[in-house]
């Protein structure tokens, strides 16, 4: 029983950063931007989260800093890909590498360390116990006592769904991706919608980053996003950007993450660390074969 509860909790924890980043990415997905910069935005967010939390001794400032750091990356993205019309793919790759270089550089300049910075001075984001719910035996253990951002992720999923499908902005957002000219001729500047979508993406990736460095663990290490931005991109593509679909896919990836940890008793850790990436390949295979069938039927 405890193993199962542990696995479920591991699944939820592992899913959260991917969910948050993917919700951000889905905004740009609908706006018709090929955005691969989630990885860099997340990494920037993770670094600034530690910076804010350490110097102001507050996780709230940590989260705010994370959002600002990630927004900084988003602004660079907007400047190049929306304003200067640079290739989105090139901008994304360069931005990811910029984030990697800049955080490694600042890690050394500001904290004077190489590789990783951990300190008792970094204030982590607290876990939340939900009253009443926490007293229910098994359910309480599963649903209560998670990191604050886990619940934020859940609320964000609902909000995103509402925003994309039920509001005027959502309609314009989808129109920006579906038919830019149509949107422009109806008097809405598609560039502005795109800009807003990238800013939203930056906010979500900032949250995801702060979960990495203040929730999951309480430290910053070089390249700590470790491909999570790419996995979130895969999640978006697999469900065509539907927020609830993204939540489901994130849980599957979170499960593979937890499964990897569990398997560590039997396999060398190098193999168990591969599990999320293999899971992505399998998910992609299922998606592609389903799509192929649709085509022929």
């Amino acid at each position: 029983m405890n193993v199962i509860i542990g696995l479920i909790n591991g699944m939820i924890t592992g899913a959260t950063p991917i969910l948050l980043a993917a919700l951000g990415g889905t905004m740009t997905y609908y706006a018709g931007i090929f955005n691969i910069a989630m990885e860099g935005m997340m990494l920037g967010g993770a670094f600034f989260a530690v910076l804010g939390s350490y110097y102001f001794e507050s996780w709230v400032v940590g989260i705010l800093f994370a959002i600002l750091g990630s927004l900084l990356m988003a602004l660079i993205f907007i400047l190049f890909s929306v304003k200067l019309k640079t290739d989105e793919f090139v901008t994304g790759v360069a931005l990811n590498l910029f984030a990697l270089g800049a955080t490694t550089y600042m890690l050394r300049q500001i904290f004077g360390v190489k590789g990783a910075f951990a300190s008792p001075g970094i204030v982590p984001i607290p876990d939340i116990d939900i009253p009443l719910l926490e007293d229910i035996p098994v359910l309480g253990q599963i649903l209560s006592g998670h990191n604050l951002l886990v619940y934020v992720g859940l609320i964000a999923t609902i909000l995103c769904h509402y925003l994309i499908y039920k509001t005027r902005f959502g309609l314009r957002l989808r129109a920006a991706g579906y038919n830019t000219n149509c949107l422009d001729t109806s008097g809405v500047r598609s560039d502005r919608i795109r800009t807003i979508s990238v800013i939203l993406c930056g906010i979500f990736c900032g949250l995801a980053g702060s979960f990495l460095s203040l929730g999951y663990v309480t430290l910053f290490s070089e390249n700590m996003s470790a491909g999570k931005g790419w996995i979130s991109l895969a999640a978006i593509i697999l469900v065509n950007g539907n927020p609830w679909g993204i939540a489901l896919i994130s849980l599957i990836f979170g499960f593979s993450d937890g499964l990897g940890l569990l398997l560590q008793q039997y396999l060398p850790s190098q193999f168990t660390s591969m599990v999320p990436y293999i899971a992505t390949l399998i998910a992609l295979y299922v998606y592609s074969s389903r799509k192929k069938k649709e085509k022929f039927s």
Partner: peptide
């Protein structure tokens, strides 16, 4: 710090391509 070069490289890519 030599990590500075990583930043410069990314900036070169952005500036040249843009």
């Amino acid at each position: 710090p030599r990590e500075f070069i990583m930043v410069i490289q990314a900036v070169i890519v952005l500036v040249v391509v843009a």
